[in-house]
Design a protein around this nucleic acid. Structure first.
Lengths: 189, 189
DNA sequence: TTATTCATGTAATTTGTTACATGATTCT
DNA sequence: AGAATCATGTAACAAATTACATGAATAA
């Protein structure tokens, strides 16, 4: 039996707080990990079904405030699988960052285009950081101080990016949009 | 006609330095963007074929040192497409970071398990940063100071991550592996 | 002679999104 | 009455990886 994927484990993790419906799981993800591990309904519902087939979760139809929903609940087997995943050494981070790739080819742009691209990008980063800050802290359980951590991390990451690109912008502006060759330090005396 | 993807444009970008074979393009990517935008042969060869069908590149078979290879060369149309992409506002960064996700569910681990997970992760980050540092600066053209930028960025990013998790580790150790609830500052007096 | 590097490509599979399809309930 | 939210699900499509398949040239 192959291992569960990260998203499959996130869904189990959401259920570790108590029974939830697919719709509710989507909401939890939106309020926490969505900006770096997202899942659409097109993923969530099939995964829940698969989890049930494997015996990791069980489900029942309930009427909640006159509204039909299918509530999923973790089984012992599901909790064990989730907990085992938590203890595994995590996959390395993967990043897809188009702006960083473009830097490779920056020599192909005119100096003023370089400056403009970086300026626009910094603005983009600022906007995104604002959006992050507006995500309401997800509090499934009082006293669980770990749920905020992920949002804090995101904000710190974007601070880092804004700072890095601002510094690059400064350098570019100092030399009219054309970085000088950096001398290699060390290596040979 | 739909836009080219990022990887399709990276391949065009590699050809902007001169004619290259699929094998050589893979090498360039390995030495620069691989750790955040990778491409396997299973992507590269079909993309080159597609680019040729679209007229963005042309190819010829050559014998180089007694070795057969198919060299691809950018056409004017290809350069225009590449340059237009360079000027577009870049896609937002996406991050897949399993360790960050696990933080959401850290309450489910025992205090000593939390500390151990963070310690192991910091070690993992250090190792990866070392690998990054060992990538030989890719210098397709003398005097192109932008090609190094992407590696510098990576090293700075990993410094940030190591620092962030070290700080978290400190906090955890201070409280025997169990973070206290942070008081919400501001909001209400 | 044998392992490594150079070199190209296809097929199957995985993983996920987007768009579609449907419909009930609640808020304005 | 109509818009928004709650709620579930499928089908088509997209992007990319992994494994497979092949073979020549070179270095040890």
């Amino acid at each position: 039996m192959s291992n569960n994927t990260t998203v499959e484990n996130i869904i189990l993790g959401c259920l570790s707080f108590g029974p939830r419906s697919g719709y509710e799981i989507k909401k939890i993800i939106n309020m926490s990990s969505s900006w770096f591990y997202n899942a659409s309904y097109g993923s969530i519902y099939p995964i829940l079904k698969k989890h049930e087939e494997k015996g990791l979760v069980s489900s029942e139809e309930v009427i909640d405030n006159g509204r039909y929903k299918r509530l999923y609940q973790m089984t012992d087997k599901g909790y064990k699988a989730f907990h085992a995943w938590m203890l595994q050494s995590p996959k390395l981070m993967t990043v897809k960052y188009e702006m960083a790739v473009k830097l490779m080819f920056f020599a192909k742009l005119a100096p003023e285009q370089r400056i403009q691209q970086i300026e626009e990008h910094i603005e983009q980063l600022r906007l995104f950081k604002q959006e992050l800050e507006e995500i309401e802290p997800w509090a499934e359980h009082e006293g669980d101080s770990y749920q905020r951590l992920i949002l804090d991390w995101g904000e710190n990451l974007y601070d880092f990016l804004i700072q890095w690109f601002s510094q690059l912008l400064n350098e570019l502006q100092k030399y009219d949009g054309d970085l000088p060759q950096k001398p290699k330090d060390g290596q040979q005396l």
